[in-house]
Amino acid sequence: MITKEDLEHIGWLSRLELSDEDKEKYSPKLNSILDYFGELNEVDTEGVEPTYHVLPLYNVFREDEVGGTTTSLTQDEALSNAPRKQDGFFKAPRMM
C-alpha cells in the first residue's frame, strides 16, 4: 500500500513534482497495480536465482584506444541540444 507519504518520498527520489491533485489522482491506480503485483507472493522462489541478464554473456570489453568504440563530439555538437549554455559550459540552475 502506497501512502501519501510514500508517494511524496518516491516523488522526491524520482524528482517528479506532484501537486496535491496529482497525489489524489495517482494513489488509487498505483495501489491497484501494486495489489495485482502482489500475486507474485504466491510463487515459491525458494532457492531460485534471479535472472538479471537473460543471456550467459561474460567479459565483454573494449580496448583502451581513443575513438575506438565511440568518437568524441565537438564542443558545438555536445552543446547543440543544451537549453541553456554559457562559455562552452552547460548552464544549470543555482545549487542552493
Binding site: H9, G11, S14, L16, L40, V43, T45, V48, P50, T51
Partner: peptide
C-alpha cells in the same frame, strides 16, 4: 517511474524487484 522507484526502494527491493527477477528465472 513512480512504481519503478518504489519497487527498487529500500524495504521493497526484495519484495518486488528481486522477486520479479526470480520469477523471471522460472
Amino acid at each position: 517511474i513512480l512504481l519503478g522507484t518504489y519497487a527498487l526502494s529500500a524495504g521493497y527491493h526484495d519484495k518486488y524487484y528481486l522477486k520479479a527477477l526470480k520469477v523471471r528465472t522460472l
